[in-house]
């Protein structure tokens, strides 16, 4: 299975070892680095799970069998968050491109999620904001 990114819902950018992803519909955003940034880059280029495992195995000098479970987990999380979607008709590209960076030892891909925006956006700018003003809630509204 290959995947794609719905440009109307998700914006993303990779800079060196870091990737930043925003779900512009929910307002949640995600950041990750290392193997996650590489996995994201490959998925964005049209890699299947197996393609990503093969290329990352070569890149990180680790067996595909070792890294495949972490890749599957990460892809599952990305699907669940709506950041990628299945694209069964997408064709494989001619090759894969990752930035030429020093790589640390393989660690399963992981990313941080930040989801505090929607609660803030709903605040009434006059009556429910704190000293800082909109879009920041007074302390009693924070969870």
């Amino acid at each position: 299975m290959r995947y794609d990114i719905d440009a109307q819902r998700v914006t993303h950018e990779r800079l060196n070892e870091e990737v930043l992803i925003i779900n512009v519909v929910s307002g949640a955003y995600y950041s990750g680095s290392g193997s996650f940034a590489d996995l994201w880059s490959l998925l964005a280029q049209g890699a299947s799970t197996e393609d990503a495992a093969a290329h990352l195995s070569e890149t990180f000098g680790e067996s595909a069998e070792t890294i495949l479970p972490g890749i599957r987990d990460s892809i599952g999380h990305l699907l669940a968050k709506g950041l990628i979607r299945e694209a069964p008709d997408r064709e494989a590209p001619d090759g894969w491109s990752l930035p030429d960076l020093p790589r640390a030892e393989w660690q399963a891909p992981s990313f941080a999620e930040y989801t505090d925006m929607w609660d803030l956006i709903q605040l009434d700018p006059i009556h429910e904001v704190g000293e800082a003003g909109w879009p920041f809630a007074p302390p009693e509204h924070r969870t």
Binding site: Y114, M117, W118, F136
Partner: peptide, 24 residues
């Protein structure tokens, strides 16, 4: 990022790139 994206209805396609570049 949070208040920029939240205050601008999710931002635009270029928002992640701009913010990453500024920070880096």
């Amino acid at each position: 990022l949070p208040s920029t994206v939240g205050g601008l209805m999710g931002g635009t396609a270029g928002t992640p790139s701009h913010i990453l570049r500024l920070a880096r």
